[in-house]
Amino acid sequence: MVSGIFSGLIALVVLLIALIALRFARIMLNQRVVRGAGAKGAQLSVKSPQPSMSALSHHLPLSIFAVFASVAYSWIAAGTKPFTWGADLLCAIAFAPMAAAAFVRFRRMREARRHDGEFRGLQEPYQALEPWLLVVGLLILWELVTYFAGFGGHREEFPTLSVLYNSAASLRPTKAILFLLWLCLGWGLFRP
């Protein structure tokens, strides 16, 4: 019963991963964030120009290399065990390019804000985000409930996200996928 539910959970996560990967791929290929033209309260607007074939062919080798390098790196990182210097090192190395990307992004946003005064970045109406806020709030709440309920040796009965992760990460391919997703999430959030 439990393994059935867990398998279903894994299948759902995989489905979500596929949806997110598709969305990331679409955004990276078809959208670029540009500053909206000069009006007061300028915002980041998302344009969806069709990228020219020359631009695509220019970036394609680098993109393919980045994808293969990320997959290979994730596979190597998945082979390490937590609490070893190897795991620490591979995790720390992954921080470096993301830190550089985040720094560039941070600087650009601050400059844009300085020039445009009322720059507010990409906005979504609060109400539009309500479904996500509800789910994230529920997730945090349930994590806290299981975390505190599991004290006193009841962790097996009250699995937290970390317990779910440990089950999934016991297989190297799954751990590699999760590591790759973590890298993708970082790039998606902090790419300049």
């Binding site: 955004i27 992004r105 507010r120 990409l122 985000l129």
Partner: peptide
Amino acid sequence: PGFVRMLETLAARPYRTAVLF
């Protein structure tokens, strides 16, 4: 918004970017 758009919204300001990092 989808998941990615939601993340983009969260990362849309400099200090949010730092916290998210």
